[in-house]
Structures are given as C-alpha cells and as structure tokens.
Amino acid sequence: MRALKRPFEGRDPAPSRLAFRLKRLWRSEGFRRTVAMRAPAALALGICVWVGAQPELRAQGADLWRAAVAKIAERPEFAIRRIEVRGAAPGVTREIEAALAPWRGASSLAADAGAIRDATLAIGWVERATVRLSAPETLIVQVRERRPALLWRHDGALRLIDAGGAVLAEVAARGEWPEMPLVAGAGADAAAGEALRIFAAAAGLGPRIRGLVRVGERRWDVILHQGPTVMLPAAGAVDAMGYLAALDAGEAATRREVATIDLRLAGRPTIRLTPEAAEARARAKAPKKPGTNA
C-alpha cells in the first residue's frame, strides 16, 4: 500500500542526472578531502614557494616576522624583574648582579640563557652556573663558587687562584690573605695542584716556608724564611719535599748555614754552603801549619 498523499503534480522529485552526480561526488570522501584539505594545503604551499622565490618579498616577510616576534617579546608580561643568585657569598652575589644588570627589565623571550651564563662565568669566582627562568618574572642563577687555594705573584701583581689555577681575583696586598700560601713565577698557576701537594708535604716545615717559585715553567724552588733555597726536581717534587721535611726533622738541614739544597738529582742531594760557612769549613779543613799541606 502506498502513501495516502495524492500523486504529485508539478515538480519532479527526482534529481536531475547532473545534480545527482554532483551531489554524489561531493559526498565521496576522497573528493571532499581534496576540496577541504588537500587543495588549500597545496595552495598555501604554492604561495609559500612563490614568495620564497622572490628575494625582496622574502626579506619583507622576514622583517614582518621579526617585528611581530619583537612586539610580542617586548610586552611587559615577559620582562625579567628579579634576578636571584643562589649559592654565592654576598660579595660575589653583588658582583654577579652587577654583571647581569643589562638583563634586568629585558624580555625573557629574547634573553639568551647562554649569554647570561657566559656573563656569569666571566666573573672569576664563579666555577659553574646554571640559568633558568622561573615564571613569571624571575631569573634564577644557580652558581658554584671557586675555592681560593693559592696566592700567585707574577708580573708585579698578586692574584688569588684556586687549585685548578683559575684566577679568582686580584689582591691588593699579601696581608689580605695572610694564611694563604704563596707561589710565584710564570706558569705557577698551571701547576697549582702540584704546589698545593708540595705545601701539604712540607707541613713539617711550618710557617718557615715563604713560598714556592716556579722555575722555567718546569720545576719549583722552595723559599724558606732565613734558610736555604731548596731546588725541587721537575718530576717527583712532592716526594723530594717529603724527603726534605724528614731531613729537616732529623738533621735540621735547613737551619744550618746552607745557601741551597739541590734535590734535583734523585738520590744525590747536593748542598751549597753560604760563603761564610764555606770559608769556615775551608779554614777548619786547612792544616794547622802552613806548608804541611798533604
């Protein structure tokens, strides 16, 4: 049984063949995807390629892009308002803050963490630094300080260096760091580690050690207060120093009238007497009467 409606008069409900085909074409998934996605994507790609092929257009585009990026980066929401330095002594903290002053108020988007880190590391006291941004406006600089180990006198300046030989700061006077052992001479900073071990081995000599002098960037001389100059070998300087300390403890070797103690040849320590002592020795060794010399 069919619908109760009277048969239609007038317009044919059937779609024309063309309309039917077009509608079906539009319903087919592949075609629809082509129109909705593939064609616009291809068009966009084509425009990009065309613009890319024209240098002035490309330059213009790049300028526009940079301007847009800069505009966003300059917004006050992105400014760095606080710089927090962690892990440094107050003096060093002030120094770091001064070094990072250019970034205060700068945009955190434009800020280069590497540059900030380099600026921090440029300060001698800083051994290691990590820089991170803590939203919304704080820059946190986590640093590790170097530990001062030696004073280094060279070229008329007195510098504070650490065990690795890195220079921490210049020192105006020796008195500022009275407890700090002293080294001198070119290349002394590079051998700072060895110098520290020598000082440790020379603990027995106590405060009589004035300092170490690097000779020819190769070996050390030990300068003793009111005592001889001890020449240490290039290799095995620490052992030689231990030997000297033992010698000093047993024989009071450094408290005699000796100008230099030469330990450069292992197993053959050589000493040079002071001129007075040499004279005295010669006198003592001379025959009691002239002419009876053997």
């Binding site: 409900p13 059937a14 779609p15 063949r17 039917f20 509608k23 079906r24 319903r27 087919s28 998934e29």
Partner: peptide, 14 residues
C-alpha cells in the same frame, strides 16, 4: 535516483 539521493542525504555518505 530519488530514493538513493534521499538515503544518501540522510546517511551523509556516498
């Protein structure tokens, strides 16, 4: 054509 067109239209697929 009429029947298929209506069915496809309500299905929204070809």
């Amino acid at each position: 054509r009429t029947a298929l067109e209506r069915a496809e239209k309500s299905a929204g697929a070809r």
